[in-house]
Design a protein around this nucleic acid. Structure first.
Lengths: 253, 253
DNA sequence: CCCTCCATATCGTCG
DNA sequence: CGACGATGTGGAGGG
């Protein structure tokens, strides 16, 4: 298959192929060719979808858009929602066959064992896309930006704060920023890029507990949660456990 | 626009339309018509993608598959990954225009203010899909299934356990299952459909703390985490805080 | 592989 | 609309 110069790979001339309402055999061949050529393949039509693996589900017949990616990912989209109604993660093996008057798309993987079966009873469109993508996306406004902001200007946390380490390991996990205040007290900082709820307080609490246990300096250990804002319940939890909050956005606007 | 019987809505005859390498004007008209008809619209081609809102990002030129859904969702997919490289949630307004020799797709919403701009410099395919979908998916193996399993046979948790309430409210949030053991002690149960880490222990801990504060029965209150399995660190946390663990799958296989 | 945690998480539910 | 927690979360980074 690797060195085969079969007709399929020779006939690949265009980056895009589109077939409307193809016969089952034509649809199967087009999908098969697309998979072999590592193209992105889409199939639109009326189908049922069955999944079994970490959980199990069945979706009765309806019109859906199916996408098979060359990295093994599979996505089944309805007309609504950002999330696919069914899917398969990258690393799966795609297969196509015709059975019982339908085009059947399989995506399977092991560890964990999962199988997605899309049975397309009416194939309305098959497309293949040969893609090239440098794929360099850069996101701004993330937790790393918030961390860098504080490292560049530690006074944003509070005057006299000195960062000593990031991702410092504790028995409870890695602390976002570890440092000392102007009185020489150890400071544990947990960063969140957006408004925080109870979970974030629990996280900070675990780090403070673990470090105070390690350092035997309970009274001299401060825990500070840094985020744009905090919910009422989270603020109450912070007060209960003598933890502090500093309001700060990931970017300076 | 609502009662206009313009040519666009009259010419809608097929559930699927496909255009390969259309002119910019043709592409714009096809997308516009698809949006007006509440069809699912896909555009494939070489494009740049800019996002600004909760964060900000820019994606340089490359081949991508763009999906505009009638509910306002937008998805930009590359050849790799299950997740879209850029997106917009449902509720957005889609718009299309031609500018500077490119097909420009806009998706915007407020609260929070977010904008996605896809600039397609080479339009290789435009498709529209008129979809109907009963959309009834039922997933088995969820946390609700685990809860129902225990409610039907409380001895799965432990002999003599009596469930008294689900989603019982506490100052820290709702407890999954609230009940009593055979010795009359109050039991707080937190359910997880899969292997649990430290976060789940923190959650259970918050509920137990809140209830013990409420009921003034510190010694008589048990907290039990129910999940298929538990990580080492989470098990250690459970022991530290005198919480218990019961191994149970969401379904009986 | 497993563990841990971030995410423009998304999604549903409830107040 | 905000808060809160589940999700077949997905994805990255480290051991």
């Amino acid at each position: 298959m690797t060195t085969d110069s079969d007709s399929h790979s020779v006939t690949r001339r265009f980056p895009v192929t589109s077939l409307e309402s193809p016969s089952l055999a034509t649809a199967r061949d087009a999908v098969q060719r697309g998979l072999e050529e590592e193209a992105l393949v889409t199939v639109f039509g009326r189908c049922t979808v069955d999944y079994e693996g970490r959980a199990a589900s069945r979706l009765e017949a309806g019109d859906r858009h199916v996408m098979l990616k060359p990295d093994g990912a599979a996505l089944v989209h309805t007309a609504e929602g950002q999330q696919p109604v069914n899917w398969q993660p990258p690393g799966c093996e795609h297969a196509v066959r015709v059975a019982d008057g339908a085009l059947v798309l399989h995506s399977t993987r092991s560890t964990p064992a999962e199988e997605l079966v899309v049975t397309v009873e009416d194939v309305l469109q098959v497309s293949t896309f040969a893609m090239s993508d440098p794929d360099s996306v850069a996101v701004v406004g993330t937790e790393a930006d918030l961390r860098d902001r504080i490292l560049e200007d530690p006074a944003l946390l509070e005057p006299g704060f000195t960062p000593l380490a990031t991702e410092r390991e504790t028995p409870a996990g890695a602390v976002d920023i570890y440092g000392k205040d102007d009185a020489g007290r150890t400071v544990v900082v947990e960063l969140k890029r957006r408004r925080v709820g109870p979970d974030a307080v629990g996280q900070l609490r675990r780090y403070v507990d673990a470090l105070s246990h390690d350092l035997h300096t309970e009274a001299e250990l401060r825990g500070i949660l840094v985020a744009p804002s905090v919910t009422d319940r989270a603020r109450r939890l912070l007060e209960q456990h003598d933890l502090e909050f500093v309001a700060l956005e990931p970017t300076a606007d």
